[in-house]
């Protein structure tokens, strides 16, 4: 579990794609017709947004798996995903502010998209803090898994907020609303960021896994299912 070599491959290929995509976006792609060069921030803003949503979705799935099946690997993945998602949400808000000032006229507005994003950032950031407060690993894993599932309710809201309430933020962009030359750097950067983040999250999960193991020793077979009463006969996993 958590092999290093494929993770490093992911990171290197992701970083390469990001460099290529950003170079095309900054140097080769034309400026947008109405926004000018300002629009180029899209090539990192939109991938960061997708990554934040993806990371928190992965945290949700890991939390669910931990509660249903147990197993420390799910808790390690939850920890990695929480941190990645929090970093991307913070980046997202900063980039958004930079983009908003020249286009909307303000750095920040309490618009539905921005508000739900802030709730997402502070919600999951709070879970990271919660993990810092709880020393006992089993309790920490269980509490943060439940909290992550509750906080995840907001994640689809972030995505759909622009349609639900009417917002200052533009609707989701798709291939039809973005001109061809802009799609190439956007796609490359999105793919690059997914690969890079997967690799980094893998290493982060590995670190969490090793840290727990050093503290508590190797995972006992019955820790795999910490939420079920001990099974009397045939404890093997199916």
């Amino acid at each position: 579990m958590f092999q290093m070599r494929p993770l490093v491959t992911l990171i290197v290929s992701g970083a390469l794609l990001l460099i290529i995509g950003s170079s095309i976006g900054l140097l080769a792609a034309p400026a947008e017709r109405y926004m000018g060069d300002v629009q180029r921030i899209m090539y990192i803003h939109v991938p960061c947004a997708w990554m934040a949503l993806l990371a928190f979705s992965y945290a949700f799935v890991s939390a669910l798996f931990y509660l249903l099946y147990g197993g420390w690997r799910h808790d390690a993945r939850l920890e990695a995903a929480l941190e990645a998602g929090a970093i991307y949400s913070l980046l997202l808000c900063l980039q958004g502010a930079l983009w908003a000032k020249p286009t909307w006229g303000v750095y920040w507005a309490w618009d539905p998209r921005l508000t739900t994003t802030a709730i997402m950032m502070f919600g999951f950031g709070g879970i990271i803090a919660l993990r810092g407060f709880v020393r006992e690993p089993t309790r920490r894993a269980r509490w943060s898994a439940v909290a992550a599932i509750i906080a995840f309710v907001n994640v689809p809201l972030v995505y759909f907020s622009v349609r639900l309430w009417g917002s200052l933020h533009q609707l989701q962009s798709g291939p039809r609303s973005i001109a061809g030359p802009f799609l190439v750097p956007l796609g490359l950067n999105a793919l690059g960021l997914v690969l890079l983040t997967s690799g980094l999250m893998g290493i982060r999960a590995r670190a969490a896994w090793l840290r727990r193991e050093r503290k508590m020793g190797p995972e006992a077979p019955d820790e795999r299912r910490p939420l079920e009463p001990p099974v009397k006969e045939s404890g093997g996993d199916a």
Partner: peptide, 25 residues
């Protein structure tokens, strides 16, 4: 009291030969 612009989700490339001039924008 406050005027905000909300642009759409459409990103268009310049027409053929059109130069994007920030001053103009």
């Amino acid at each position: 009291a406050r005027l905000l612009v909300s642009h759409g989700n459409e990103y268009r490339q310049p027409r053929n030969g059109e130069k994007i001039d920030m001053r103009q924008l």
